[in-house]
Amino acid sequence: MKILVRTPNWIGDSCISLGFLRSLEESTAGELFLLAARRVAPLFKGFGKIVEFSGRKELFQRSLSLRKTGFDLCFVLPPSLSSAISASLACSGERIGPAGEPGRRFFLTRALKFDPHKKRHLLIEYLDLLRAGGFTPDFRLPALRFEDRETEWARDFLVKKGVDPSKTVAIAPFAAYGSAKEWGIERYLELAGKLLDKGLKVIVMGGSSDRARSAPFEGLRGCLNLVGKLSLRESAALVRHMLLLVGNDSGATHLAACAGTKVIAIFGSTSPRWTGPLGEGHRVIYKALPCSPCFKRECPLGTRECMKSIRVDEVLEAVLEAVGS
């Protein structure tokens, strides 16, 4: 059996989907192919044959070229119309995915309705797709697969930077989805300062688009700003050596969790029931205000009260408790 998986586009969702892929691998001896956006493709290293694309035009071109592979089954994880269209171009066999955007059902052979209120974890809903494909999957935690050389690189990097990982906490202040997900850079700056006062070191992590916004951290002695300076896999290899990571419901937080690092995840506009970190040792800080979760990119009320209601000292206490200080 040849199976194609159209992987999610967001880093966080892609990390969560690693649990789906682990379950799929254990459920079949079939040949696995992944159709993945170039920005997230490195996350899937070690899981089948990866076919990368960038942009909708290349997505459709790659999909059409894959048709000759003769796929028996395709799982379409993103809810977009374009992902369903690409699946129909690539696979003449069964195509299974969430109902998602209007029009998708025409391009899928089976469309499942995911919980519109997002009260079931996304990984559980992904596993429902496997069951619809006739598999009986066991639950598996999302986990990245590292090569020895990546582990060695991370250790060498930390030595060169003079960083003792046993005394270092990572923070990830940004969220690509929108500001509604962000706790606020001023709070992360205050938290970093208090962690440094406690004798801990701080590494700041994030993507290249947030490099300019991370500038205020440059003035903190004992704080290493790596925002925009590492690849996705380098970030994952590095953060797995940290005591823990503090972040929003963002790609960096999910990256740390599936790298095997404890996370303290700050939720406001989204629901931890849907995309909370999976595994032992993680902690979610979430106030569940009446207006939350709204799942919007920007706060509809203009107040971001769901995030502002989370105090710096509350997060600091959670960090110190987690690291045993």
Rank of each mutant, 00 (worst) to 15 (best):
A154N: 09
I285Q: 08
R120P: 04
G19F: 13
E186H: 14
R283E: 02
A259C: 10
Q61C: 15
G302R: 12
F47L: 07
F47M: 04
F53M: 09
I85H: 00
D72G: 15
E101H: 15
V40A: 13
T303E: 12
V227F: 00
R39F: 14
T69R: 15
L66V: 00
E186Y: 11
R240Q: 11
V246Y: 02
G268Q: 03
L230I: 11
K45G: 12
L108H: 14
D249Y: 04
F146S: 05
L238C: 09
S208Y: 03
S271I: 11
G207I: 07
G251Q: 04
S14R: 15
P78F: 11
G222A: 10
K181T: 00
C15D: 00
R120M: 15
G178S: 01
Q61A: 09
L191V: 08
R120S: 12
A237I: 11
T253P: 05
L232I: 07
H117A: 09
R233I: 07
A175N: 01
A111P: 06
F174Y: 11
R120E: 10
G12S: 02
R38I: 04
A257P: 06
T151E: 05
D249E: 10
E314D: 14
Y177A: 06
G222W: 05
A132S: 11
A154T: 07
L77T: 05
I16S: 14
D72Y: 03
E234K: 13
S250R: 09
C15T: 00
I285H: 11
L238P: 06
I96A: 03
K57L: 13
R304F: 12
S231Y: 08
Q61E: 13
E190P: 14
A84T: 05
L226Q: 01
R221A: 15
P142T: 14
P277Y: 06
L301R: 14
P78Y: 09
R95I: 07
V323M: 02
V239A: 00
R105S: 15
V76D: 02
S166T: 09
D156M: 13
E52K: 15
G48I: 08
S27K: 03
D164V: 11
L158I: 12
E147C: 03
E25L: 14
A29H: 15
G48V: 02
G281E: 01
L24W: 04
P116K: 05
Y286W: 12
V163K: 01
V204Q: 02
H282A: 05
L24S: 09
S250E: 06
I171F: 01
N225T: 03
L244G: 02
S271M: 01
K160R: 15
A90W: 07
L81D: 02
A172N: 00
F44C: 14
P272Y: 12
I16G: 07
S86M: 07
C15S: 04
L123W: 10
